[in-house]
Design a protein around this nucleic acid. Sequence first.
DNA 1: CTGTTAGCGCATTCAG
DNA 2: CTGAATGCGCTAACAG
Lengths: 344, 344
Amino acid sequence: MNKTKLTLKDVAQQLGVSTATISNAFNRPDQLSKARREDILLQCERIGYSGPNKAAQILRKGTSNIVALVLADSIAYMVSDPVASTFIKGVSTTLQQQGKHLLLYAGDSKSILDVVDFVDGFICYGAPRNYKLAREIAAQPKPAITVDFDIVDVPSINIDNEDAAYQVAKAAIEKDDVVAILGLRLIDSPSTCRIYDNPLIDTDSSISHRRLDGYLRAAEEKGVSIQNEWIWHLPESDRNYARQAAKEVLMSSPRPSTVLCMSDIIALELLHSAIAMGIDVPNELKITGFDGIEEADRARPHLTTICQSSVSKGEAAAKALLAGEVRKQILPFDLKIGETVGKR
Amino acid sequence: MNKTKLTLKDVAQQLGVSTATISNAFNRPDQLSKARREDILLQCERIGYSGPNKAAQILRKGTSNIVALVLADSIAYMVSDPVASTFIKGVSTTLQQQGKHLLLYAGDSKSILDVVDFVDGFICYGAPRNYKLAREIAAQPKPAITVDFDIVDVPSINIDNEDAAYQVAKAAIEKDDVVAILGLRLIDSPSTCRIYDNPLIDTDSSISHRRLDGYLRAAEEKGVSIQNEWIWHLPESDRNYARQAAKEVLMSSPRPSTVLCMSDIIALELLHSAIAMGIDVPNELKITGFDGIEEADRARPHLTTICQSSVSKGEAAAKALLAGEVRKQILPFDLKIGETVGKR
DNA sequence: CTGTTAGCGCATTCAG
DNA sequence: CTGAATGCGCTAACAG
């Protein structure tokens, strides 16, 4: 019994054939007769050789079957977010089907350079918290695709956030409403607050600002104006931030009659807080969400929201990356009217 | 401007030094003067060389800084399970601190051999659905650690499942109770069902069977016996399976007065179903969970359950792996008495 | 269909 | 502290 791991060369010697033959048996079936190949594979199994060393293959071939999924934030945060984890689901399913491996990469990492040499490509889900990563992605030579944000000349997957926000807002807002918005990453602040006159960040690239545009357009059409003191910023789509913001909104005077939330997590937290305070939804308070997460289905009353299929996004992203797609795609969404808007 | 990527050799030539010097500048600071090193690093940055090629380093050094996290099931499933995703959180946090990368590996994959050559080690979370993977882990030479199950001679992280189950059951069961158990992976069936006389699987290694033992011991002490027709098997800790099982349990006659659930997801689903049917918890029905997930905190009445910190498990697993730990560890748990047991 | 050879890009001896 | 040489394990050309 050999102690040290067998190499292709060892095996070739033991079987009395050349290294190329062994290599071909594993990698290029068409380069030798079926019988020969099967014989070799069998012999290899018997002597405990399970195929060419992958590390060497990565160097030699320049491909590894590893795809890096660059998340917007830390893995810890992303994995507990229902929207992100659903996206990961879509990505992983597709990658597994194609025999690819999934490397999770945090968006708050220093740099992407320590994996670029051995991964086959990048899927970037959301603008990375460390925005330098986005620049590195753009500069680096491996295929990449972005989701829910854009980098010039990099293929992407998005929905029409402006239109989606417009539609859901239009379903909620009525004449004479006092409208508030619970937004995500609108300004550069680590805590929940009203945006007032703080400068908006990333005004062009951010999906949050596209959504804000949609909300405001719908409001305008309904003849309602929304001042900045009615617009909240939350640093993350997180229950704790949401609870705090919900409290602020519900304590405001006058209390808004419609609150447009940029995620279902936020909307659900607001809904629960409102119910706990004995507020009648939707008669006293209308609420809209965004995303269409599963938990929203379990809430009563049913949430009015925009359903975007994160699984589809993940699948689309993985497929597009593997297929070498270069275009930017816009995926559809569904407006779902629940019971949190309109009078009963 | 070079089109092709710079190699260490190119850089050495350009800077007029030897390749070893460049290599040392990046990898072994002690091998050259600080000034020299900083000068070289600066030059490298200026000409756009970001360091030695990682793929080549993997081959040469035999390490990659990649740790594979082998999940019990498909990534798609695991990532949406609150317990598993919390575990991933713990693992990823620790790995990121130590500059390691996280490769997610599905437990229903064919084999582990296609990554063994380039990862530095394995963390196995739960017995993989394809149990062959466990054997491969045992046979392969890289460091590995298992969590929530065991492989002979492989270090592991576990809690005392028997004791935990015993304690939570003991807190719930009262004399003359009719007790039912909603168990996980007790028999080899893809659907929810009572176990009756079906042969139990994996009787030794499975944590489910340890929990079952604990439940039964507590019942016995209370003078209650639990027949097999009062024990359900669920293939996964999944809301849909749980809902179905909950329905069966609540429709049973006589209806159990205590139901011991092997996960909080199951327990919460049962709780919701019971409330929807107007059943008084805990006066007409006592419920216990297992895991201590966040969602259980939000439920009313509060769930009585076993809190095991999945984050700690993840951290412990990653640390133990990186530290070369070889022992098997038993982590503590907490019995949390909520309002779903005992009379009010 | 098979065997020989030249690197993939680097880290590490070992002299100097 | 530096430079030349060796090979990590493999694949792709190419020649037979």
